[in-house]
Design a protein around this nucleic acid. Sequence first.
DNA 1: CAGTATCCGACAAGATACTG
DNA 2: CAGTATCTTGTCGGATACTG
Lengths: 112, 112
Amino acid sequence: MLTTGGCPRNILTIKDALEAIEGRWRLLILFALSGGSRRFGELSREVPGITDKMLSKELKNLEAHRLITREVTAGFPQAAIYTITDHGRSLERVMIELHYWGLLHRQEVMGR
Amino acid sequence: MLTTGGCPRNILTIKDALEAIEGRWRLLILFALSGGSRRFGELSREVPGITDKMLSKELKNLEAHRLITREVTAGFPQAAIYTITDHGRSLERVMIELHYWGLLHRQEVMGR
DNA sequence: CAGTATCCGACAAGATACTG
DNA sequence: CAGTATCTTGTCGGATACTG
C-alpha cells in the first residue's frame, strides 16, 4: 500500500516519472517499440491515430529522455530505425500494469 | 514480455487506459487520494504545482471516469470530501510501478 | 522513405480576482 | 472553505503541402 506519510517525496517521484512519459503518444510509441525496432513509417501505421508531425516530435522527446535510440542507415531509400533502450525497457512493467488496468477499465466504464 | 504480434488490440487497450489517466495531474491526484480521503484544500496543497482551476477540472474528470467520488458535508464551513473508488484503487499497481520507475529514471537521466 | 513547413482551431494551464 | 470567472499564453494536434 502506498502512503504519502505527510512527505511529498513519493508524489514528487511520480511527478518526475510523468514528466518523461506524459501525453497521449509516448507510452504508445514505447509499447510498439517494445515488440522490436521499428522504422518511422511502421510506427506511423502501428500507433493508432498519430500523425507524422506528432510522431516526429515525440520520437525526439523520447530520444532526449534516453528511452529510445535513432539510427539512420546509409543507402537509398534511407531508413530510420528506432530502438528502445534498456532504460525504455524498464518501463515495460508500467506498460504491463497499464495494459492490465485498461482491460479492467473497459469492463468498469464501458461495460465490455 | 509484451508482443504486439501484428495485432493492434494490446496497443488499443493501452490507448483506452491512457484516455482515462492521461495528463500531468490525474495520476498525482489519485496517488494523493490513495493515502486516504482528502478535502479540496488538502489536495490543492499536496499535489505539487497544481492550481485550483486545474484541480477542480480534473476532479470532475476523475469523477466522470468513476475513479473518485465527491461528497459534500452539511454545515458551515462546507467541506468537500474526495475519496478514491475501488476502481481508482485498482490503479495502485500502475502507480507503484510508476513510482518505482521514477526512482530508476532519476538515476538514469538526472544522475542522482 | 522520412520527415519538415505552414496554417489553423482547440484545449491546457497559469495568474488574478471574485462568490456562496 | 470550495470553488468559479476572466484573461492570456503556450502547447497539442490535425490537415495539407512540400523536400532531400
